[in-house]
Design a protein around this nucleic acid. Structure first.
Lengths: 136, 136
DNA sequence: AGTGCTGGTCTCTTTTTGAGACCATCAAAG
DNA sequence: CTTTGATGGTCTCAAAAAGAGACCAGCACT
């Protein structure tokens, strides 16, 4: 019988209707968001938005990043086109990282989020305290 | 001699001057940013911004999230005060998740970032392709 | 000859994430 | 009356990612 088939079909249609056909998988936005969503990416972009920095300067500026993650995160940011990497033939050679136009463009909305965090971190801390108290 | 000590002190002062005293460690903004910066958090907040959803609906809406990470991420979002969790005594009991006022407030700048990603994902993909080609 | 600064890489351990089995309860189907 | 399915989870184990720290080459200064 087609009973089951019809049922299944209608379920799929109902589901698609419910979600307005929006499927969050295979979404390019997710893919791009991941790139600026790492643990260190927003921090480094914010630092570089102020002015270009050299590798060692960034390491000192963000004391709790490991050298390994600094290398890796800068590499990813460079790959996504947010950061420009330039090597100067000094001795020892120095490497300067700076934001590209794309990076500066991305920093505009990112900074909005940072500002929100700045304004509302009290509220978030209170929410956490209240939640933890309720659990106990 | 104090030679070395003076040198060290001046280095610290030079460093603080260079960075304008900004220390990115122990920054409350970082702490708050981490909360909305996970792999799944922005996605779930975006979904819940549209309308409240139940646990199973979210799982179907985001097919590639594991049940474990869905539970955990919603729990963190609830702890940070972005999400409200309500259990309805139906049989079987159903659980609805919705954004709080704080969550809706946070979604405003988050959505700016999502829109940027929507507008610029082509540029990012091109940057990646160019970078990968240059490496080869 | 020894020390330090440069920007990394390599290895090892710990933490985080993903995949999937399992659970209790009740409704409807067969 | 037994099976099947949906509810929202938790638990365990494997895989992936992140952190800690050693190591490296080249050159300057002492």
């Amino acid at each position: 019988m087609d009973g089951k088939i019809v049922n299944l079909k209608s379920k799929i249609e109902i589901y698609k209707a419910m979600t307005n056909g929006a499927n969050f998988a295979d979404c390019p936005v997710r893919d791009v968001m991941q790139g600026m969503n790492g643990k260190w990416s927003p921090l480094l972009v914010t630092a570089l938005a102020e002015k270009p920095y050299r590798f060692g300067e960034l390491r000192r500026l963000v004391p709790d990043i490991s050298q390994r993650m600094l290398t890796q995160t800068l590499h990813e940011l460079q790959r996504d086109g947010y950061v420009h990497r330039e090597v100067f033939p000094t001795k020892p050679p120095s490497v300067e990282y700076s934001l590209t136009d794309l990076g500066r463009s991305m920093f505009v909305p990112l900074y909005q989020l940072v500002q929100w965090a700045e304004l509302n971190h009290d509220a978030v801390r209170e929410a956490r305290a209240a939640f933890d108290a309720a659990q106990a």
